[in-house]
Design a protein around this nucleic acid. Structure first.
Length: 262
DNA sequence: CGATTATGATTAA
DNA sequence: TAATCCTAATCGC
C-alpha cells in the first residue's frame, strides 16, 4: 500500500480531519492501549510526513510516530464510527471522522528529539519543498551499489518504494543492477525530477499512475491497483513490446526490459 | 482452508 | 541471505 505519496496524502487527510481538536484515542485490538490512553484528550497540532514516516505532534508534547510498513493501512470512517473490524491498533476520532490504523510496522509515542533523529537518518524526500536533490545525486555518484538497491535505501532518497523504483528505472532506460557511480549527474537529476513529479501526481490521485492519460482507457478514479503502471508486475515493455524479465534486487522483485534498460 | 502474496524494513546469521 | 514482524486479500487445491 504505502510509498511516500500514500503517507503524504494521509498526513494531508489527517490534517483536515483531526488537527486542532481534542482526539478520542483507543486501541480496540489492545496492543497500543497505553499509548492510546496518553493520546486520548490531546490535540494534534501538526501532522508531518517524511518519506514513509508520519508524525503527529500532540499538545502533550509527545509525538505519535507511524510507519505503515508493507501491510499497514489507515481506514476513514464518518462519525459516529462503526464498531472496529479486524485488528485495529489505534483509532483516532476527531469531530466528523475517525481513522483506524491496522498492521503498522511502527505505532509509537516518541519525544520530538526522537522524531527528529528519525528524520535525520532519511535522505531527501522529493515531496518536501526543502528537499535537496544534490544530496541524492552526490550519494549515488559515490556509490558502487546497484541503483536498484540505492533507490530503496531510505537514507539515499526517502519515499521511493518498489513500484516507483521499477517505473523510474524503465523510464530512464537504466538496468536495476547498474552501479550508481556509473550514472551521470544529469541522468540522476532527471531521475529525481521524474520521481518528484510522479510522487506529486500520486499524492493528488491517491494512487500510482505513471502511464500517460492518453494510454489509459478509463478515468483515474477507476484505475485499480497495478493498472496504471508501465512496468511493475507487467508482462511486456510498452516501448519495444518485448517481454520483461523479473529480477530480484535488494531482496525485492523487479521487472526490467533487457533491451531498453542498460 | 492452508499457502501465498503485498507499494517495508530491521535484526540475526 | 534468511528470518522475522504486522494483517488481510487472493490463490490454488
Amino acid at each position: 500500500m504505502p510509498e511516500g505519496h500514500t503517507v503524504h496524502r494521509l498526513a494531508r487527510d489527517h490534517r483536515r480531519d483531526l488537527r486542532g481538536r481534542p482526539l478520542a484515542a483507543s486501541s480496540p485490538q489492545g496492543r497500543f492501549t497505553e499509548g492510546a490512553t496518553r493520546i486520548d484528550g490531546a490535540v494534534a497540532e501538526r501532522f508531518e510526513a517524511w518519506g514513509k514516516h508520519e508524525f503527529a505532534f500532540l499538545s502533550t508534547g509527545e509525538v505519535l510516530h507511524v510507519h505503515l510498513g508493507l501491510i499497514g493501512k489507515w481506514a476513514r470512517h464518518r462519525s459516529p464510527a462503526p464498531a472496529p473490524v479486524g485488528e485495529i491498533r489505534l483509532r483516532l476520532e476527531g469531530g466528523e471522522h475517525a481513522w483506524d490504523l491496522s498492521g503498522p510496522a511502527i505505532c509509537a509515542l516518541a519525544t520530538p528529539e526522537e522524531a527528529q533523529a528519525r528524520v535525520d537518518r532519511l535522505g531527501p524526500d522529493p515531496l518536501r519543498r526543502d528537499a535537496d536533490p544534490d544530496r541524492f545525486v552526490t550519494r549515488v555518484r559515490r556509490s558502487a551499489a546497484p541503483i536498484g538497491v540505492l533507490l530503496l535505501d531510505q537514507s539515499v532518497i526517502a519515499g521511493v518504494g518498489n513500484v516507483y523504483r521499477a517505473e523510474v528505472l524503465w523510464h530512464l532506460g537504466l538496468h536495476p543492477a547498474r552501479a550508481g557511480r556509473t550514472i551521470d549527474a544529469g541522468t540522476l537529476q532527471a531521475m529525481w525530477d521524474w520521481l518528484a513529479h510522479q510522487l506529486r501526481l500520486g499524492v493528488r490521485r491517491n494512487r500510482i499512475v505513471t502511464v500517460d492519460r492518453a494510454e489509459l482507457d478509463k478515468p483515474f478514479r477507476e484505475i485499480r491497483r497495478g493498472e496504471g503502471v508501465a512496468v511493475y508486475h507487467q508482462e511486456r515493455c510498452r516501448r519495444c513490446r518485448g517481454r520483461f524479465t523479473t529480477l530480484e534486487v535488494a531482496g525485492r522483485r523487479i521487472e526490467a526490459c533487457l533491451t531498453c534498460q542498460t
